[in-house]
Amino acid sequence: MTHGISGSDRQSKNERREAAREKAKALRDSQRKKDRRSKVVLQGSVILVAVAIVAVVAFAIVTTIKPASPGPRNMLSDGILIGEGLTATPTAALQPGADPVPNLRNDDDDVIRIQMYVDYFCPICGQFEKANGDQLTTWLESGAANVEIFPMAILDRASQGTKYATRAANAAACVADTSPDKYYDFHNSLFANQPEEGTVGLTDPELISLTKEVGVENPRVVENCIKDQKFKNWVADARTRAQNGPIVDSNIEKIAGTPTVIVNGLKYTGALDDAKAFSAFVIQAENTNFNESSTATPTPTPAP
């Protein structure tokens, strides 16, 4: 007996071909769906990565490029005016883009106005302070003179990359902003602890320690101000303004270097480490107030 496939079970060649086509079509459709899903996933991943990159860049820009902010309070002129009893003259803060407002000088009184542009890293500034600091303090305490101090940062290049001149000037600005009546003490302390030029300078913790030693008010606020270098941009702008001028009510146009000392509008050109010469200059300048025709400074002569 012969066994075979019945006619109803046997597929014709056309039917087999059609079945193969249907199977291939199903495979293609399935692959296309997989490809579409993979494409969507890939596009979504690319978008997420792009969004993440934009967020990182935006964060970096926001954290590195800070908007302009006001300068320190009590330094509207870019300097702080210290008067009788070592107290500071209160002022508003200098607003971004604004010009400094000079402190008024009363030509009718007999109070001597001394302006000092100093870099706290400048060794010659330190020599001037060492020679004349005690005399300046005596004049201030008695009310014989006012001293306006302009902190500048010129010697950043000399501190092995730590930018000590800027950090010291910023620290001084932090003290002026929140504890102005302690500024003069801090000014003296910076020179008493002045590091040698060419070193890294004082660290921020050391600067903070000095502010606490002079008894600043709100020491934590001052500490954060120093750590954040809150007035770093103001320090740079104030330096530019001083170097470009004008220096109002004086016989000089701009600040060429530190220390620059001006007495009643007249620049001191004598020996910076000679207390007698400076004292004699101050006595002479007291009676030779600056006016538009003042082109020369009194000649320092030995005090009697």
Rank of each mutant, 00 (worst) to 15 (best):
150 F>D: 00
152 M>W: 09
153 A>D: 07
155 L>F: 15
156 D>F: 12
156 D>N: 15
156 D>I: 10
157 R>A: 13
157 R>T: 11
157 R>P: 00
157 R>D: 12
159 S>T: 02
159 S>P: 01
160 Q>K: 12
161 G>F: 10
162 T>F: 08
162 T>W: 06
165 A>K: 09
167 R>N: 15
168 A>R: 04
170 N>L: 10
172 A>E: 02
172 A>M: 04
173 A>K: 00
173 A>D: 15
174 C>N: 00
175 V>F: 01
176 A>K: 04
177 D>V: 02
177 D>N: 14
177 D>W: 03
178 T>Y: 13
178 T>V: 15
180 P>S: 07
182 K>W: 06
182 K>H: 12
183 Y>F: 15
183 Y>Q: 02
183 Y>H: 04
183 Y>M: 01
185 D>K: 14
185 D>N: 13
186 F>K: 02
186 F>P: 05
187 H>G: 05
187 H>T: 05
189 S>F: 02
191 F>I: 01
193 N>H: 15
196 E>L: 07
196 E>I: 05
197 E>W: 08
198 G>Y: 14
198 G>L: 10
199 T>D: 07
199 T>A: 10
200 V>I: 15
200 V>K: 15
201 G>M: 05
201 G>E: 01
201 G>V: 01
202 L>R: 08
203 T>K: 08
203 T>S: 15
203 T>C: 03
203 T>D: 00
204 D>I: 06
204 D>F: 07
204 D>G: 04
205 P>H: 05
205 P>C: 09
207 L>A: 02
208 I>H: 01
208 I>T: 03
208 I>S: 00
208 I>W: 00
210 L>A: 02
210 L>S: 01
211 T>Q: 10
211 T>R: 08
212 K>V: 06
212 K>E: 11
212 K>S: 09
214 V>H: 12
216 V>P: 03
217 E>A: 14
217 E>M: 10
219 P>V: 04
220 R>F: 10
221 V>R: 13
223 E>A: 09
223 E>T: 14
224 N>I: 07
224 N>Q: 13
225 C>N: 06
226 I>W: 02
227 K>Q: 12
227 K>E: 10
228 D>N: 12
230 K>F: 00
230 K>Y: 02
231 F>W: 09
232 K>H: 12
232 K>M: 11
233 N>S: 11
233 N>E: 11
234 W>G: 08
234 W>Y: 15
234 W>P: 02
235 V>K: 03
239 R>D: 10
239 R>E: 07
240 T>Q: 12
240 T>F: 09
240 T>H: 06
242 A>H: 09
242 A>R: 03
242 A>M: 09
243 Q>R: 14
247 I>R: 06
247 I>F: 12
248 V>M: 12
250 S>N: 00
250 S>F: 01
251 N>V: 09
251 N>L: 08
251 N>E: 07
252 I>V: 12
252 I>Q: 04
252 I>S: 05
255 I>C: 01
256 A>N: 09
256 A>R: 05
257 G>S: 13
257 G>P: 03
258 T>S: 09
259 P>R: 04
260 T>P: 01
263 V>Y: 03
264 N>S: 08
266 L>D: 01
267 K>M: 10
268 Y>N: 09
271 A>K: 15
273 D>I: 07
274 D>S: 11
275 A>W: 06
276 K>E: 14
277 A>K: 11
277 A>D: 14
277 A>S: 14
277 A>I: 06
277 A>T: 04
278 F>L: 00
280 A>F: 09
281 F>W: 14
281 F>T: 08
282 V>M: 09
